[in-house]
Simulated scan of single mutants.
Amino acid sequence: MTEKDFLPAPYQHFSDGGKVTWKAPSNIALVKYWGKLADQIPANPSISFTLDACATTTTVSYQKKESNTDGLSFDLLFEGKPKEDFKPKIETFFNRIVGYVPFLKEYDFTIETSNSFPHSSGIASSASGMAALSLCLMDIEKQLTPNMDDQFFKKKASFLARLGSGSACRSIEGDLIQWGEHSKIPNSSNFYGIKYPFEVNPVFKNYHDTILLVHKGQKQVSSTVGHDLMHGHPYAENRFQQAHENLHKLKSILAEGDLENFIKIVESEALTLHTMMMTSMPYFILMKPDTLEIINKIWEYRKESKVPICFTLDAGANVHVLYPESVKEKAIQFIQNELVVHCEKGHYICDRIGIGAKKIMDKK
């Protein structure tokens, strides 16, 4: 599908208003996306586990405008309070997508959003937040276009979410989502995420992700700036090729339940992501001393115990500790005994692979 496929036909009718609520999870990339082209097109393909507990719930209330104004009209509440500093990002997002959801100009909107994790926890909420908002908008469009099928609904929601935050396109469905064109992955697209189309061994179906909150709050460099620094990066082309190759290698690894090689790719991808940050110009380091302490302890524990526990990182200092259901008790014991001491105020979040976003029905 191309961008033109997401342009709507004239709406059949406009309702006077209503309210919709969706809950969308965050995700953690195994093969990382770093670097983008215009219109949120990824410079390389990626694949992620959809999470479960770390999620954003968004309610969009909408009312037909009383006057025929052509602009966008919305209020934003974050956890029950006005959040003016969030509004510019939403306005930019709406301006990007208004051609694909032109009903945005027909209504006054109130957006109420909250996270299941503290906003200052250092977990990026843009993926779950933009996914939840996009699903709400698609829910409204489906009411204006009742014959829309479920497959198109999800694809367009992913397409819209990407225009808000690239990785948000991987937060619509679960449990393993691939995004970005890849010559050996059928139906892969730069415009939206797809459910991973190949066989996946059951060992990867109940994976856990314990997120160690090493550093909370604002990062010194935003992801947007970091992505832009890949333009002209001396190692960019090799990195993009590496991502393609690692995705291809994962096909047999995921099918066979090959934990040893899964760990090698996932940890290498995490360290490569941060290597690209450290070798850009300007360069920067988002890992903290405690990040490195955790990594070294994981390596030592895995070598001694043979427990298939590994780490990955996002564009920050926090550590995602990944392990299969079969070693859950041992992994949690190790985390509590050895790793929590490196977390800010001892805070960590236990999460696991989820099935994707879901609509929250009004209880009234």
Results as ranks from 00 to 15, higher is better:
residue 1 M to A: 12
residue 3 E to G: 01
residue 5 D to V: 07
residue 6 F to E: 02
residue 16 D to N: 15
residue 23 K to C: 12
residue 28 I to E: 08
residue 32 K to W: 01
residue 36 K to N: 04
residue 39 D to A: 11
residue 43 A to F: 10
residue 46 S to W: 04
residue 46 S to Q: 07
residue 48 S to T: 11
residue 50 T to P: 07
residue 51 L to E: 00
residue 54 C to L: 14
residue 59 T to H: 07
residue 61 S to H: 08
residue 65 K to N: 06
residue 68 N to W: 08
residue 68 N to M: 06
residue 68 N to Y: 09
residue 70 D to K: 15
residue 72 L to Y: 04
residue 73 S to R: 15
residue 73 S to Q: 15
residue 74 F to K: 02
residue 77 L to C: 10
residue 78 F to Y: 13
residue 81 K to W: 11
residue 82 P to D: 13
residue 83 K to M: 10
residue 84 E to L: 11
residue 88 P to E: 13
residue 88 P to W: 05
residue 90 I to V: 09
residue 92 T to C: 12
residue 93 F to A: 03
residue 95 N to P: 05
residue 96 R to I: 10
residue 97 I to G: 03
residue 98 V to W: 13
residue 98 V to S: 15
residue 99 G to T: 03
residue 103 F to N: 10
residue 103 F to D: 12
residue 104 L to R: 13
residue 106 E to A: 13
residue 108 D to I: 11
residue 112 E to I: 07
residue 115 N to I: 00
residue 118 P to Q: 09
residue 118 P to W: 05
residue 118 P to H: 07
residue 119 H to L: 09
residue 126 S to D: 04
residue 127 A to T: 08
residue 128 S to F: 00
residue 130 M to K: 05
residue 134 S to V: 06
residue 137 L to T: 07
residue 138 M to A: 02
residue 140 I to D: 09
residue 143 Q to H: 14
residue 147 N to R: 15
residue 149 D to Y: 03
residue 150 D to H: 14
residue 150 D to R: 12
residue 151 Q to D: 14
residue 151 Q to L: 13
residue 153 F to V: 00
residue 153 F to M: 01
residue 155 K to D: 07
residue 157 A to D: 03
residue 160 L to N: 10
residue 165 S to M: 06
residue 171 S to H: 11
residue 172 I to N: 08
residue 173 E to Q: 10
residue 175 D to P: 14
residue 176 L to K: 01
residue 184 K to M: 13
residue 188 S to C: 12
residue 194 I to S: 03
residue 200 V to W: 04
residue 203 V to A: 06
residue 206 N to H: 08
residue 209 D to G: 01
residue 211 I to H: 02
residue 213 L to Y: 01
residue 216 K to Q: 05
residue 216 K to A: 01
residue 217 G to Y: 02
residue 217 G to R: 02
residue 218 Q to E: 14
residue 219 K to H: 00
residue 230 M to G: 03
residue 232 G to A: 02
residue 233 H to A: 01
residue 233 H to Y: 01
residue 239 R to M: 09
residue 240 F to M: 08
residue 240 F to I: 04
residue 242 Q to E: 12
residue 242 Q to Y: 08
residue 245 E to Q: 15
residue 251 K to M: 14
residue 257 G to E: 12
residue 259 L to E: 03
residue 263 I to V: 12
residue 264 K to L: 12
residue 265 I to W: 02
residue 275 T to D: 15
residue 277 M to Y: 09
residue 281 M to P: 10
residue 282 P to T: 04
residue 285 I to Q: 15
residue 292 L to I: 14
residue 294 I to H: 11
residue 296 N to H: 11
residue 298 I to R: 09
residue 301 Y to D: 10
residue 302 R to G: 08
residue 304 E to T: 14
residue 308 P to H: 05
residue 309 I to W: 01
residue 320 H to C: 00
residue 321 V to Q: 04
residue 321 V to G: 03
residue 322 L to T: 04
residue 334 F to Y: 06
residue 334 F to Q: 08
residue 335 I to F: 06
residue 336 Q to T: 05
residue 337 N to V: 10
residue 340 V to R: 00
residue 341 V to K: 10
residue 348 Y to R: 01
residue 349 I to N: 00
residue 349 I to T: 00
residue 351 D to P: 06
residue 351 D to S: 07
residue 356 G to E: 11
residue 357 A to I: 03
residue 358 K to S: 15
residue 363 K to T: 12
